[in-house]
Computed example of a mutant assay.
Amino acid sequence: MSTRVARTRRVVPALALACVTALGLAACSSDGNSISKQANQGSDKNYLAGDGTLAQLAPGDRGKPVTLSGKLLDGTPWSTKDHPGTVIVVNVWGSWCPPCKAETPDLQKAWEKLQPEGVLMVGVDRQEGPQTAAAYLKTAGVTYPSLQDDGGAALVALQGKASATPSTLVLDQQHRIAARVSGPTTTSTLVGLVDDVLHQAKG
C-alpha cells in the first residue's frame, strides 16, 4: 500500500521536500540549508551519523503504536503506556556522539517550548553507562528524562526507525510514529513537526 506525506501547516526549516518509501520512514530534502547538510558538516570523520532526512506520515498512513519502556538514568521505571493520549518526542543519543552533543541545546529549547503544550520528551541513551550519561546531561543543562542503554531493546521497540544516532521520532497521541529526523535536528524543526501533529488531532 502506498504512503503519502502529510502537508505541513507552516514552513518547517530544513524541509523542502519529504518522501516516504514503502519500507517505512525514509525521506529526502533538496534544501541547501537542510538538516542533511548540517549532519554532513560534522568534524569527526570516523563517526557515521544519519543523513539528516526528515519525513512525516499522514494520520491514515501511520503504523502500529510504539510501546517503549525501560529504566530512566536514575533507575525509575518509565513506559509510554503510562502516558496515554500524549504526544511523545523520542531522541536517540549518546554523549560520545558529536552530532548528538551539537543538537542538545536545541532539544532542550524545544522541550521548554513544548512542555506547556502537554508534550513529553524522552531520550534513549546508547552505548554508555547511566552515570556517564547523567553527568553529561547535568553539565548540558538538560531537564527532560532519558532511558538507560538497554542493549538495543529500545531500538527494536522503535520499529527500526531510529537506527542512526542521533534520531528523533515524534509519536502521536496513539503513540504511532508521525515524524522522524534521521540525524541532528533544530528547535524550530522539531517544534514545527510536533505542532503539526497537535493540529492534526484538533482538525
Rank of each mutant, 00 (worst) to 15 (best):
G160K: 00
S163H: 02
T187G: 03
S188H: 12
D172N: 13
V181N: 03
R180E: 03
A164Q: 05
L193A: 13
L171H: 06
L171M: 04
G192D: 02
R176W: 06
V181R: 03
H175T: 04
T186K: 04
Q159W: 09
L171A: 03
A162S: 13
S163N: 14
L171P: 11
D172T: 08
R176D: 00
S188C: 00
S182W: 11
A164S: 15
V191S: 10
Q159P: 00
R176G: 06
A162R: 00
L158Q: 07
T189S: 13
T187C: 13
S167L: 01
D172P: 12
K161Y: 15
L158M: 12
A179F: 08
V194T: 08
V181Y: 06
R176E: 02
T186Y: 07
L171S: 07
P166N: 04
G192T: 13
S182F: 11
T168F: 01
I177H: 01
T185H: 03
T189H: 00
K161T: 13
V191T: 11
Q159F: 05
V194I: 10
P184H: 08
Q159E: 09
P166Q: 02
S188M: 05
S188R: 13
V170S: 11
G160W: 04
R176M: 02
S167F: 01
S167Y: 05
A179G: 12
Q173N: 14
T168L: 05
G192M: 01
L171E: 11
L193Y: 13
T186M: 04
P184S: 15
T187H: 10
R180L: 13
K161I: 00
G192N: 10
V194N: 07
V181E: 11
D172I: 09
A157E: 10
K161M: 14
V191M: 09
H175F: 09
G160Y: 04
L169H: 01
R180T: 14
A157I: 04
V194S: 09
T168E: 02
I177C: 05
I177V: 15
V191R: 03
T187A: 08
S163Q: 14
L171D: 11
Q173H: 15
R180H: 08
G192R: 05
P184C: 13
T187I: 06
G160T: 10
A178R: 08
A178T: 02
R176H: 14
Q173D: 15
A164L: 11
Q159V: 04
T187M: 09
Q159L: 11
G183D: 05
A157L: 04
R180D: 00
S188P: 00
Q159A: 14
S167N: 07
D172Q: 12
Q173F: 11
T168Q: 06
L193V: 13
S188G: 10
P166M: 08
K161G: 01
A164T: 14
S182M: 12
G183L: 04
S163W: 04
A162Y: 00
